[in-house]
Design a protein around this nucleic acid. Sequence first.
DNA 1: AATGAATGAGGTTTCATTCAT
DNA 2: AATGAATGAAACCTCATTCAT
Lengths: 201, 201, 201, 201
Amino acid sequence: MAVAERESAPRRRAPRVDAVRNREAIIEAAAEVLAEQGTAVDVREIARRGGVGMGTLYRHFPKKEDLIHTVLRKEFLEWAESARQAAIDAEDPWMALTDFYQQALTGCARHRAIMENFALTWSVPDLEGIQQLRMVIEELCARATNLLRPGVTTDDLLLLLVSLGHAVELTDECRPRMWNRLLRISLDGLRAEHREPLPAE
Amino acid sequence: MAVAERESAPRRRAPRVDAVRNREAIIEAAAEVLAEQGTAVDVREIARRGGVGMGTLYRHFPKKEDLIHTVLRKEFLEWAESARQAAIDAEDPWMALTDFYQQALTGCARHRAIMENFALTWSVPDLEGIQQLRMVIEELCARATNLLRPGVTTDDLLLLLVSLGHAVELTDECRPRMWNRLLRISLDGLRAEHREPLPAE
Amino acid sequence: MAVAERESAPRRRAPRVDAVRNREAIIEAAAEVLAEQGTAVDVREIARRGGVGMGTLYRHFPKKEDLIHTVLRKEFLEWAESARQAAIDAEDPWMALTDFYQQALTGCARHRAIMENFALTWSVPDLEGIQQLRMVIEELCARATNLLRPGVTTDDLLLLLVSLGHAVELTDECRPRMWNRLLRISLDGLRAEHREPLPAE
Amino acid sequence: MAVAERESAPRRRAPRVDAVRNREAIIEAAAEVLAEQGTAVDVREIARRGGVGMGTLYRHFPKKEDLIHTVLRKEFLEWAESARQAAIDAEDPWMALTDFYQQALTGCARHRAIMENFALTWSVPDLEGIQQLRMVIEELCARATNLLRPGVTTDDLLLLLVSLGHAVELTDECRPRMWNRLLRISLDGLRAEHREPLPAE
DNA sequence: AATGAATGAGGTTTCATTCAT
DNA sequence: AATGAATGAAACCTCATTCAT
C-alpha cells in the first residue's frame, strides 16, 4: 500500500478517492442541470442530484460561478476535440472543413451549455478552450488555403462557427436539420471562386 | 377614437391620460434597463426609472414577463420596420437584400433586447413581429429570385438573420465591424451561381 | 388629518402609518433579542418576533449591522438622557456627579446592549450619543470644579463610566450591588483632597 | 514518568511525541489567531496555522470551546504570574499594589484574549487561574492592610482589576497611556485616609 | 493517531408579487 | 388609479463538527 501510494502520488498524501468521485459527481450533476435549466439553477439542486452536501460542493467550487465555468470548460474541450477529430479524419481539405463544422454544430445541438461558454469567446479570447479551437481552425485554413477565398481569417471562421452554433441552438428542437442549409450556404460563400475582397474591419 | 372613448364612458372621474403616460414611461424605462442589464433586472429598478410605483407597474403588467414581452415586441417592430424601409429604398434587388441585412444587423448591435426576442422566432413562429419580418423577406426573395441560388427559402434567410444577429451581439463591443465580413460571405453563398441544391430538411 | 399631515410632513406623500409601526416593531423586537442573545442573533428571529417578513426588515435596515446600530443608538440615547436627568435633579454638585453615575450604571445593568455600543466610544468618538454624554459630563465637571482633584478631564470621567459599566455588566447577575463599592472608591479618588497630579498621557 | 509510561504500555506503536507536539502547535496557533481575530475565528484557520488536520484538532479538543478555554487559561495563568512577580519585587506594600496593577493592566493591553477569560471571573469563580490571582491579591491586601481604607475586600480589588482591564482594552490603541490616570484615581480612592465605610452589598 | 473531505443547519440577502393606504 | 411597504420563498454561502481513509 505504501508503495502504491508512493508510486501514484509521490508528494501528496493521498489522491482522496472519494473526493475525486464527488468532484466528478458534482460536475456531472451540474452538467445535467445546466443543460436542462441554464445557469439560473439552484446550487442545492446540483448538490442533491450529485448526492453530496452543500459544503462539499462549496469545498470544490467556492463560488457558483467556479462550478459553472468548470463544467462549461470541460464540455467545451470535449466538444472542440470531437470536432478536431472529425477534421483530421477527413481526406481532402474542403471535406475537413465541412466535417469540422458538421461535427461541431451537431455538438452544439446537444449541449446547450457549450454556447454559453462559446459566447465568451470574444470577451475572454485567451480562454483555454478557445485557444485549442482556434488552433484547429488555423490548421484547417492552412490545409484549404487554395480553396478559400482570399482574405478569410481564422477569426472569420471562428465567428461563423459561433454564429451558426446559435442558429443550431434555436432550431434544433423544432427543425433539427435546418441548419445544414445555412452551413452549406456559408461554406459556399467561403470558396475561392469569390474573389471580391471582404470588407476591412 | 378619442371621441369614441369619451362617448362610451363620459363620466370616468380621472382621465386616461395619466394611465397612458404611465404605461409609456414604464415601457421606456424597461427598454432602457433591458438594454443595459438584460432580463435579469430587478423590477424595482424599472419602476424607479419610470417614476411610478410598483403597484402601477403591476397594474399594467401583471407579470414581469408581460412587461418584457411588451417591450421586446415594440422594439422588435420598430427594428423590423427600419430594416424594411432600407430594403424599399434600395434600387436593385440584390442591393435591397444587402441593405436589409445591413440595417437589421446594425439594429441588433444597438438593441441587445431584440435578440432575446428574436430567439423566440422558432419556438413561437406566429409572434406578431416575426410575421411582418417574414413578409419583408418574402418580398425580397421575390424581387431577387433570379439572383438567388435555387431552393433558398424565406426561412433560410430568416435564420441567417438570426444567426448573424448573434454574431453581431457578440462582436459589437470589441470588434464592431467584424460582422460585415461574415455577412458578405453568407450573401455570396446565396448567389445564383451556386447551383448545387441545398440539403433537404 | 390632512392638516396634521401637512403640518408634520409638508413634502412627503404620507407618513406610512404601518411602515412606522413596523419599524418600531422591528426595533423593539431587535432590542429584546439583542438583550437576550447579544449581536449573534438570527435576523429571522427578529423578523418573527416583530411580526414582519424578512423583506420588511431588510427594507428598513438593508444590513443586519444597520439594524443593530439603530437599536443600540436608541437605547444609548435613552440611557444617556436618564443619567443626565438624574444629574440635573440633584441638589449639590457632588451629589449630581454621584447620582449621574448611579443612574448610568444602573442602566448598564439592565441593557447589555448599551455596553456594546459604549465600547465604540473611543474608536468612533463622534458617535451621536457619545457627544451628548460628553456634554453632560462636561457640565458636571464645571459644576463640581472645586470639589474635583486638579487635572481631571471629561475623558477621565467618561472612561471611568465605561470601565465601571463593564464591572456592572459582569457582576449584575451574581452580586448585583457590588459595583456600588467600586463606584464609591473611584469617586473618592476623584475628590479635590488628592492633590498629586495625574500622570500625563 | 517516561519510564512509567513505557512500562505500563510497552508496545504502543507510535510514541506520544507527535501528539504532544501537535497539541502545543494547536494551542500556539490558536493563541495567535485568537489574539488577532477574537473568538469568532474559523477553526480551520487554527488547524491550518498549526499545521495539523481538522481531525487532529478535534481529537485534542472535542469542542471549539474546549480549545479556546485551554488557550485562555494558559495565557491567563502566565499573565497572573507575571503580575504576581511584579508585586513580589516591589519594596513597600503600596508600591507592591501599584506595580501589581501596572503589570497586570499592561498585560491586558497585549493579550486581548485575557479579558475574554477574565470576564468569566464572576460566573465561574473557581476557575483555576482566578484562584491564583485572588491569592495574590489577598497577600497584597494583607501587606498593605494599614494603608487601605477599612472594609476593602479582595473582591473589590479583583473587580477593580477587571474593570480597569476593560478600560485598557478600549483605549490601548488610540490613547495607550490614558488608563494610568484611571488607575491612579482608583488607587487613591483606596487609601486609608478615606474613612467613610463602603456601601454594603 | 492523523488527515482533510463531507455534512447540513443556519446565516444574510434579494426580488417577484401582493395589498393596505 | 396610484403608491410603495410588506411578504416570504429561495438564493448563495459559512462553519462547527463528524467520518472515511
